[in-house]
Amino acid sequence: MSVLELRGVVKAFGPTVVLRGVDLAVDEHRVVALIGGSGSGKSTLLRCASLLETVDDGQVLLDGEDVTDPRVDADRVRRRMGVVFQAYNLFPHLSVLDNVTLAPTVVHGRPQAEAVEEAQALLDRIGLADKAAEFPDRLSGGQQQRVAIVRALAVRPRVLLLDEVTSALDPELVGEVLALVREVAGQGMTIVMATHEMGFARQVADTVAFLDGGVLLESGPPGQVLGEPQHPRTRRFLARVIDAGRL
């Protein structure tokens, strides 16, 4: 059984249809990379999967449970997922440590001391233990994004959803964030990531899915989708990416 499964997900904002029926199954310990041009619906797909948007049709299943059923408590479902955003979205009025311990204590009711200890250990692992008392605005973009990843991991999610987590970073800072994602993936976390980093997708993803015009045009192993794309639109997209020097 897949950890996360999307069945015929449709999402429109007013007259703009963003997702036109997307099917996607993510098995445990797998990494799925969503690629596609801007406006292709990658972010919307992740927002639908994390229930930050209500789908207009179709289903999202988490561990086989239809979480798009309005009778399901969405807050309880979101506790089992971790989301990392393009713009980090750390809470600027809370210290780095409080950002990480907020959900474990407030949402999951874990004792403060235990949550702090665990958060310190996580921060230590990413080399930011000495920044625990700082506020996010004292950190570089790369550091903030790594804290955001740790914040999402602190609730021990079933699946981690990464929405272009390196797109807002200076090129020199991209590496440290990707290294953390690679490490998290190596530990067996189930991950769905929207990304423009084709080289990274090729190395880390088990499946690459190409989204275009709200439809999953092509998906498969990275070598196949990125190396021998079948669909002409995928080929055109990848050619543009190569022209931009990103592959």
């Binding site: 807050d75 979101r78 997922m81 407030v106 609730v155």
Partner: peptide, 16 residues
């Protein structure tokens, strides 16, 4: 709104 999205994605309720 991204602050609200981040909070809700962590499982916080509307009131929290």
């Amino acid at each position: 709104p991204s602050q609200r999205a981040a909070a809700r994605s962590l499982g916080l309720t509307h009131r929290q």
